[in-house]
Simulated assay, not measured.
Amino acid sequence: MPLHYLALGDSYTIGEAVPATGRWPVQLVHQLRARGVAIDDPQIIAVTGWTTDELSAAMDAATFTPPYDLVTLLIGVNNQYRGRAAGEYRSQFSGLLRRAIALAGGRAAHVVVVSIPDWGVTRFAREQDRDPAQIARALDVYNAIARDEAGRAGTRWVDITPISRRHPDLVADDGLHPGAAQYTLWTDAILPAAAAAVK
């Protein structure tokens, strides 16, 4: 039987402004299949603009078929964008992580947490006259929380934030969200952790 993959997140997971084939969860499945892994198309629970609590509410209403052999979680940029407190993020992210582990059949090593990219380097941020240094500092705090919670829970952690900072021009036409080419770089970084999770 093929393995089952659940991707939880927001605009970065659903691939806002890119074709479905450009989404990194879809690219990840293609790369895993190229390695000989029999895996289904991803079930994606993600909508542009979602915060941690909105993802949790959507999960309450979603239909799942656990246990999943791979679960990825990338969430938090909209918490930062809306100026939410870091302490609130930790509490809500920790809850989402527990749910992700449960959906993976209690197997924490089958969950991969992906860091939040830095939107402060994008053309959108420049056009909005946003402070890139302030955005970077805030996202570094959020990512430190996510990394800490992932470590505590025994899940896997992949840091794609440096990729987003090195490639500010690899964005979609909206000038904000990554383009398919940047998602390919993310996929290359996520692949080893995902392959180890389903091994």
Rank of each mutant, 00 (worst) to 15 (best):
R156V: 00
G179Y: 07
P178Y: 12
H177Q: 09
D188P: 06
R165M: 11
A181L: 10
A180S: 14
D159F: 05
V171A: 14
T184A: 13
G175V: 00
R166H: 14
L176S: 03
P162G: 03
I163D: 06
D159E: 03
W186I: 05
D188I: 07
D169M: 12
P178A: 14
W157M: 01
W186L: 08
Y183Q: 06
T161F: 03
R165I: 10
R166A: 13
R165C: 09
H167N: 13
A172T: 05
W186C: 07
H167G: 07
P178L: 13
I163A: 08
T161H: 02
Q182A: 15
P178I: 12
L170G: 12
T161C: 05
Y183L: 05
Y183D: 05
T161S: 04
D169Q: 15
W186Y: 11
R166C: 08
D188F: 06
P178K: 15
R165E: 14
D159V: 03
R166D: 04
A181S: 12
W186R: 06
Q182Y: 08
V158R: 01
L176H: 01
P178W: 10
Q182T: 14
Q182C: 15
L185P: 04
T187K: 01
T161V: 04
D173K: 15
D188R: 14
H167E: 11
I160S: 03
D159I: 04
H177G: 09
D174F: 11
V158Q: 01
D169T: 14
T184G: 13
A172D: 06
W186K: 08
P168K: 14
D188M: 08
P162A: 01
S164L: 05
L170M: 15
V171W: 08
A181N: 09
R156A: 04
T184F: 08
L185C: 07
D188Y: 06
I160Y: 02
H167T: 08
